[in-house]
Design a protein around this nucleic acid. Structure first.
Lengths: 182, 182
DNA sequence: ACCTGAACACCGTTCAAGT
DNA sequence: ACCTGAACACCGTTCAAGT
């Protein structure tokens, strides 16, 4: 049973980490996070053994939201529009913290990544969305969903969240999977 | 006029940095580079004020080679094949050191990057290659060369040089610019 | 059961002092 | 004109010692 102070430290650390990641990106100093939380460094490591553990705690429910969003779009729009809209939302997610694309890359392909399982539901929902679009003939049948997701993540990395460039590169990718506007 | 020992230190530092980047990637410790070169840290900073200066010295002639390669391919192959072949060579370049994609990203879009000017000739040659392919109808006329290069660099980043995945993602990009196999 | 903060080995970078 | 290596402020991470 967790002590009250332990629980409080956990919350404070999470809040401080969120702040620091927003300000300085994913590589923000962990000692600084602990300082902001008013806690010793070792306390941070006790609650979150790795930087990825911190990210996981911060992002898990966002991945749930992304999965839900995919399912909502599935019945609400045309298959192509749904897919395009969701990929935009996904890119916005990767832009949450500077440097987030790198851990996301790991999450998308490395089973040992701590974010790997947090992503699983989202990936499943994304695959449904893709298959739906493929069955409607809006996307080529031979493209692999994981490939697309990793490529879109790479676009987010390459454009650093600059919206116009992100949109241009994303259009190229969409064209590549056969989902371009005609 | 440079002293003999200064010149020798310069060469040693360059060699040590090349070694270290190959082993540990672009983020290798600069103190360690100096140690390997048998030189004090300040001597490294005197010759190469920044890590990017080191990269520039190591890569400049490779960019010249890449430019030359583009011009060679221009008359030797079909426009489409030439373009595809060169992009593969470019991706291989980005894989020279682990983590190189990040400075390359800067070089391709940030004028303040020290690699920016080193890249200029290569970019010009690449644009020629692209225009050639576009005139031949092998690539869509509305795609921007810089966009493509940045996207391909992003593919190199996303695949970490794993050849099969790199090829799959690159195919998607090629399809996106209208240069896929039909 | 949990927290503390001093400590370790490292990093990038700069300094006064040397030759 | 160039080099030295000690030094600074930082980093991630772990420790024995506390309550």
């Amino acid at each position: 049973m967790a002590r009250a102070d332990a629980r409080r430290n956990y919350e404070r650390l999470l809040a401080a980490a969120g702040d620091a990641f927003v300000r300085y990106g994913v590589d923000a100093s962990l000692n600084d996070v602990a300082r902001r939380a008013g806690v010793g460094p070792a306390t941070l490591y006790r609650h979150f053994p790795t930087r990825e553990a911190l990210l996981e705690a911060l992002l898990t429910d966002r991945y749930d939201t992304l999965a839900e969003r995919a399912r909502t779009l599935l019945d609400s729009s045309s298959p192509r529009e749904a897919l395009v809209a969701w990929l935009h939302v996904f890119m916005a997610h990767v832009t949450t913290y500077r440097g987030l694309a790198t851990p996301v890359k790991a999450a998308l392909q490395d089973e040992t990544s701590e974010l790997f399982s947090s992503c699983h539901g989202m990936q499943a929902a994304w695959h449904e969305l893709l298959v739906h679009a493929q069955k409607a003939g809006a996307v080529r049948a031979d493209v692999d969903g994981s490939d697309v997701l990793r490529l879109v993540n790479a676009v987010a990395w390459a454009t650093d969240g600059r919206p116009d460039e992100a949109d241009r590169l994303l259009s190229l990718v969409l064209e590549g999977i056969g989902a371009g506007q005609h």
